[in-house]
Design a protein around this nucleic acid. Sequence first.
DNA 1: ACTTAGACTTGGAAAAATATTC
DNA 2: GAATATTTTTCCAAGTCTAAGT
Length: 668
Amino acid sequence: MSSSDSDDDMPLAQRAAQNVDVKPASNGAAAAKRPAARKPSSAAARSSPSSGSSGSDSDSDSDSDSEDDVPLSQRTPQPKAGAKRKKPAAAAVKKQPAKKQKTNSGSSTRPKSGGKGGGEPKWTTLVHSGVLFPSEYEPHGVKVLYEGKPVELTPEQEEVASMFAIMKETDYMSKPTFLKNFWEGFKEVLGRGHVIKDLAKCDFTPIYDHLMAERDKKKALTKEEKAAIKVQKDAAEAKYKHALVDGRQEQVGNFRVEPPSLFRGRGEHPKMGKIKQRVYPRDITINIGRDAPIPEHPYPGQRWKEVRHDNTVTWLAFWKDTVNPKEYKYVWLGATSSFKAESDLLKYEKARKLKDYITDIRKNYKRDWESSDVRKKQMGVAVYFLDKLALRAGHEKDDDEADTVGCCTLKVENVECVPPNHIKFDFLGKDSIRYENTVDVELAVYKAVQAFIKVDAKGKRKGPRDMLFDTFDATDLNKELKGLMDGLSVKVFRTYNASITLDRLLSEMEEAEEDAYAAKSVDAKKADYDRANKEVAILCNHQRSVPKTHETSMAKVTEKLNAMREEIKALEEEHETALKAKGRGKNPDAIASKLSKKMAALEKAELQAAVKEDLKTVALGTSKINYMDPRISIAWCKRNEVPIEKVFNKSLLSKFHWAMDVESSFRF
DNA sequence: ACTTAGACTTGGAAAAATATTC
DNA sequence: GAATATTTTTCCAAGTCTAAGT
C-alpha cells in the first residue's frame, strides 16, 4: 500500500530533476508554472527597505480574494499551466489595518484552541511564502550488489538504497532494530518477487563510494564555483526567509521541508531505520493571513492539504510525520521573532515568580514527607526532586518510543538507597542521555524512598520495573502544582533552578573579591562565567559525546605544554647565567621579562587545557539558550565591563534582544 | 476519568562556517 | 595557504503541557 494515494504524483518521475530548487534563471520559470499562483501581487516578502513610505505601495488586488476562504476542495480546479504569471512583482507590504475584525473571527472553522494563550489572537495579519521543498531525487545509476552481482533498481528503489548506503559508517548498521525496520521498508519498495530477498546479501558499497566521491567532488570545487552555488541557493531561499506579522518583518525558522531519509531515533528507538517518506504539498497545511496570497509550490498537479487562517497559533505550516503519524512537524518563526521573544520573557518571569513561592512550597513538601497519605508523601518527595535536582517531568511513553524516564516515570531500578542517606539515581532521560547522580537527602526522604521501592500504595511488593511513584503521573503532578502557584508546572522548576544558580554563582564570585573583581581581566571574568555556566549545565545534565578528536588533540596540547615548560626552564637557566655574568653577557632583565611572559602564556594554556578536558562531556549551549535568563548574563556583563559579545554570539544576541536594556543591578 | 490532538520548547549531533596553526 | 581545531548553525528528534474529545 505504500504508494497508495498515488495518482497525483504520477508525473513525479518526469518532473524529477528540473523544477524545484536551485536554478538561477529557470527558477522564475519553474515558479511560474505553478497552480495556486494567485494574482499578480503575491507579496514576496523581500527584504524591502521596509522603511515605510514607499510610494509604490499599490496593493489594489483585493478584488476577488474571497476565494482564499474556500476550504480547498472547491477551489479553482486545476490551474494548469495556463495560469502563467510573471514574477510576483516586488513586495507590497500590505497593511490593511481595519480588517482585523474579519480575520480574527475567521478561524472559527477550526478547533479554536491554540495551546498557550488559549484562544487569544496572536496576530492580525500574516504574510509568508510557505515552505521550500527539497529537490527531487536524481538517480545516479550506481548499482547495489546482491550476492556479488549488480542489480538494476528503479529510481525509487535506488533512492531508498542510497539512504541506507550513506549510513554505512554509522553504528546504526550494527543495530538489529534498524536493519529490521529498514528491510521491511525496502522490501516494500522492491515489491513482491524481487531478486533481492535478504538484506544481509546486499552490498551497498558501490553506492556508498559513489556518494562519498560526490561529496568530495563538491568539496573540491573552487572558491568561485562554491560561491556561485551559494548565490543560487540564497536566491532560491530568499523569499522563504521572512514573514510579515502585523506588518513587521520577522525571520522564519525552518522553512525547509524535511527531505526523505531513514529515521534516526535516539537510543533504542523501536522505529529507527524506517523510511521517512517524501513530503508533498498535499501533505502540508498552511496557516496564513486571510488577505495574504496563498503560497506557491512547485508541484503543478497538487494543492496544499489545507489552507487555514488561524490567528490563535503561531505556526506557518505543518505536516504529519510519516514515521510517527501522531507527530507534527511545524514551521515556525525564528528565535528572534517577537512570538518567541514574548514567550521567552513570559517563561523567565514565571520562573522568577516561583521565588516568591518556593519557601512555602518547601515547607509544604517537607511536611508531606511525613504524611500517612501515600500519594501526598510521594508527591512531596517528587517535588523535592524537582526542586533539588531539576529533573524533567517524565510523561508516560508508548511502546513505539525509546524507553526513557523522568521524575514521574522513575522506576524502582532507577534509584538505590545508599546508607546512611544517599540516593543514587541512574536512568536514561531525554534523548536517552544517562543521568547518574548520587545525592545526599534528608533522612525523611531517604526513608520514604526506601518505602516506595518496597511496596506500592496498596501494600503490594514492587519489582525493579515498577514505578517508584505509583500514585500519580506527570499530568497529575502538574495539576497539583497549579494549586501551589498560578501557572506552575514541572518545567518551571528547571528554569528557576538553572537561572537562580547562575545568578547566585556569578554574584558569589563578584562578592568574594569585592571591588577587586572589576579589575580582573576580561578573560578571567569570562572564565568565571563559563564555570558558572558549567555548573548549570551539570545541574541540567546537558551532556555531549566526547568529540572524536578529543584524545589526539589533547595529546597535542600536552605536548605543547611540555615544550613550553622546557623553554621556561631554559630561560631560567639563561637568566641565572646572565645574572652571574654581571653585565658582561646578556641583559638579565630582558630575559626576565621574556620569562614572565612565557610563564603567563603557560598558565593560560594550562588553564585552557584543563577547561577543555573538563568540558569534554558537558554541553554549555543548551542552558545558555533555554534555561539561563539572559538578563542575568547581560546585567553581569554591564556590572563588570565585560562586552556582551564575549558571552553571547551573534544569534544569541539577537535572540535575546528583548533583554538587552536590563539594568546592571538586575537579579533573577 | 482517560486518551488523544495539538502546539510549543528543549536537545544533541552533524554540517557548515570561522579561526588558528603549521 | 592548506590542514586542523573550534565555534556556529542547521537539522530534526524528543520532550512538556494544555485542551479537546469520548
